[in-house]
Amino acid sequence: MKTSFLDFEQPIADLEGKIETLRFAQEDSAVDISEEIARLEKKGQNLTKEIYAKLSPWQIAQVARHPQRPYTLDYIKLIFTDFEELHGDRTFADDHAIVGGLARFNGQPVMVIGHQKGSDTKEKLYRNFGMPRPEGYRKALRLMKLAEKFAIPIFTFIDTPGAYPGIDAEERGQSEAIGRNLYEMAGLKTPIIVTVIGEGGSGGALAIGIGDVVQMLQYSTYSVISPEGCASILWKSADKASDAAEIMGITASRLKTLGLVDKVVNEPVGGAHRDPAAMANNLKKALQDALKHLSSLSLEELLEARFTRLMAYGRTKEQASR
């Protein structure tokens, strides 16, 4: 598949276009230009490294939403085996914006749950752009309860613009569905490992985001509201999205500094979509480490640590009572 480039990647795109032309020329040329191609490829690598070394938060948000970014099902394919998708919330429907099921992780049975976006128009619609309705969250909770019953660890993968803001979603209790998950996940008696793989969009992300280890891929984002949403409310202009992205602190590195995530998982040069296999490899290592650590804890220790983590969220100051 041809790589699609973001605006700020234009210099890389130009260079890769040039390499492509040379390769094409090479085929019916007597002169050997492979050295030149290799030189340019090296240059392209360095250029990508250079550009990616100083991405702004808003540019990172673009990478997190990159149309070719690997999604949950891609990682399931690359990291897990024997995936058996389990469908439906048993009450209303099967929400395609959230996928989940049993799988093996290094041979060990686990539950995998994640938001799922689509890569072409048809699939995007089918997946509702990764925006779940209440039945999606209820399916996720059903699967988590199932995992709890059989003492199976849970991996969740977050990648959503947010919960679906639609009439039907409201009618079926979007608020309750999200709140219920937060409540139940806080006390779920099995390890939960959360990874933000793309967009961590507000409550719709958090609804499968309570866990014992919370990590983010290097170019993923996690925020209380989208930069565009924040800009249109506070600046009354969506054009200020880049300012909003800057100030809200939505990137993995910033959130790590703020103590809101445990670990940043490095991405390959140019982002996860440039080398999904390498990305999956890094992610697998991180998941392995997390699971190993959590498996060493007793259930009491696990739940106590989770509760302590949840209660520690927030920054305030204290003054003697008025």
Binding site: L206, Y222, V224, C230, M248, L260, M311, Y313, G314
Partner: peptide, 22 residues
């Protein structure tokens, strides 16, 4: 809803308040 001026800290209050109820 959440207080945007506190970024992700505010989102996490959803988790904190709800967890306390357990």
């Amino acid at each position: 809803g959440a207080r945007m001026q506190e970024g992700l800290f505010s989102l996490m209050q959803m988790a904190k308040t709800t967890a306390a109820l357990t």
